[in-house]
Design a protein around this nucleic acid. Structure first.
Length: 427
RNA sequence: GGACGGGUGGCCGAGCGGUUUAAGGCGUUGGUCUUGAAAACCAAAGUGGGGCUUCAGUCUCACCGUGGGUUCGAAUCCCACCCCUUCCGCCA
């Protein structure tokens, strides 16, 4: 016990005892004063147990003194004890607050299986899956295709909302809607439960998901309300079971949500300014798992596979990237990215990022489960992965499926979502 | 946005300054009984932190929406805030 707890324990006993003494109807004022006097004497010699017992009626040795003021002196002594406890507690609180502020800045530790590396340049690219298309013409970047087909309107997007804003039109908007439905349907096939969540959350939720305090400058906020726009649905889903203890039989829990994601992208001003690769608002379908510690790494593998299946369904060439220690980010113990090839802008585009955070988020959001037969609850493990981010998939489809006449073929898997259409016609 | 009422364990619900160790009920778990079940009866059980321990336990602090305050002592009194019911207003 800490010092303040020791004092508090005595206070609790004495407060109860003095209440008993006050309300003891068997006593007259004189004998009550005499007991108080004896209790006071014990208190002054440091014997709190005895003082409490005397007040509860156990006779002690008679002592000299003024019985009429004894109870007042007792309460004075107890007040002093209370002041002392409060003083100590204030000190403890101050230290704890300062400590927490520091601890929130400490990132998660990499898992043993994560390869060592200083930066994203050392990330390990697995062999790509799916054929990389060859073209009989020079494939165009999506920003040219989008304007030519009148399916992305950059100028009017900027007019509405400033830099990095865009408007999807006609087939562009429909394509995104079709993609999201495909993503969600495939997630459901993999056992994920679909959610519709608030697009903004309270500040605590940002801490719970590990976004705050480090990435505070990335999110949009209403400074007058305690409200922050989601940079990813992960924040909302993580906190669904905040301060709860889930039954082990419920685990693993799979959830999926389609939300817009809002990001200031302040840190990367000047990068990727063309097109819709890096924007302030985009649609993303997020896959999320709550698991036991024993299964979280195999769940990470199946999570990456679930995301990979979407790339396969769309017949896009993609590869898995194994993230090295130096590029892990703040919350993850292990992470895989999925990249699809975009022949127009000639680069691999990150369309998914799948992480195990182990108990990192669960600790912050206080999400526990009770193992079978155990009295003690413990933290769950949480995993998140995109499945997938819409704009970059739109880029990949436009650039991979473009044809010599400027039209874009629609991937087979998407056609049922677009009334059976097989092509976005050129203008 | 205005008015009223209210937030208590897994759920319902009592308590409204000191024997609260939070009543009672429902539900849960174990046991008795039973061929098995039901019923009945008996028993157990909140969450988190910390300390001892022979790992069966045991002691202790905190927790009754949140944060302050009053008091020797707060679930109970006061203030602020949040949330919910109902009614009114507004609105897709």
């Amino acid at each position: 016990m800490t010092e303040s707890e020791v004092i508090q324990a005595s206070r609790n006993k004495l407060n109860r005892a003095i209440g008993f003494l006050r309300g003891n109807k068997k006593l007259d004022d004189t004998s009550r004063g005499q007991l108080a006097l004896q209790a006071l004497h014990s208190l002054q010699t440091g014997d709190y147990e005895r003082a409490a017992k005397i007040m509860e009626g156990e006779a002690g040795d008679p002592v000299d003194g003024d019985p009429t003021t004894a109870i007042d002196q007792l309460t004075d002594t107890l007040r002093d004890m209370g002041d002392r406890v409060n003083g100590l507690n204030d000190q403890v609180r101050e230290v704890n607050t300062a400590l927490d502020e520091q601890l929130y800045w400490i990132p998660n530790l990499p898992h043993d299986s994560v390869p060592y590396g200083d930066s994203d340049e050392q990330n390990i690219a697995h062999p790509h899956q799916g054929a990389i298309r060859t073209f009989t013409f020079e494939p165009k970047p999506h920003w040219d295709l989008g304007v030519a087909l009148d399916i992305i309107d950059f100028e009017r997007g900027v007019k509405l909302a400033g830099s990095r804003a865009y408007v999807l039109k006609n087939w562009g908007a429909r394509l995104q809607r079709a993609l999201i439905n495909l993503f969600l349907d495939m997630a459901r096939d993999h056992g994920f439960e679909e959610l519709y969540v608030p697009f903004f959350v309270k500040e605590d939720m940002m801490y719970g998901a590990g976004q705050f305090p480090k990435f505070r400058d990335v999110v949009y906020t209403d400074p007058e309300a305690d409200i922050y726009m989601l940079p990813t649905a992960e924040v909302a889903i993580t906190n669904l079971y905040r301060d709860e203890i889930v039954d082990e039989a419920q685990l693993p829990i799979y959830m999926v949500a389609n939300t817009p994601c809002f990001r200031r992208e302040k840190t990367s001003a000047g990068r990727d300014v063309r097109g819709i690769k890096r924007v302030h608002q985009f649609q993303k379908v997020e896959l999320y798992k709550f698991t036991t510690p024993e299964t979280s790494y195999q769940e990470l593998e199946s999570l990456v596979e679930a995301a990979s299946d979407v790339c396969r369904a769309l017949e896009l060439p993609f590869r898995r990237l194994e993230i090295v220690t130096g590029d892990l980010g703040f919350s993850a113990t292990k992470k895989y990215d999925l990249e699809v090839w975009a022949p127009g802008c000639q680069e691999w585009l990150e369309v998914s990022s799948c992480s195990n955070t182990e108990s990192f988020q669960a600790r912050r959001a206080n999400i526990k489960y009770r193992p079978h037969g155990s009295k003690k609850s413990q933290f769950v493990h949480t995993l998140n992965g995109s499945g997938l981010a819409a704009p970059r998939v739109i880029i990949a489809i436009m650039e991979n499926y473009q044809q010599a006449d400027g039209s874009i073929e629609i991937p087979t898997a998407l056609r049922p979502y677009l009334g059976g259409a097989d092509v976005i016609p050129s203008k």
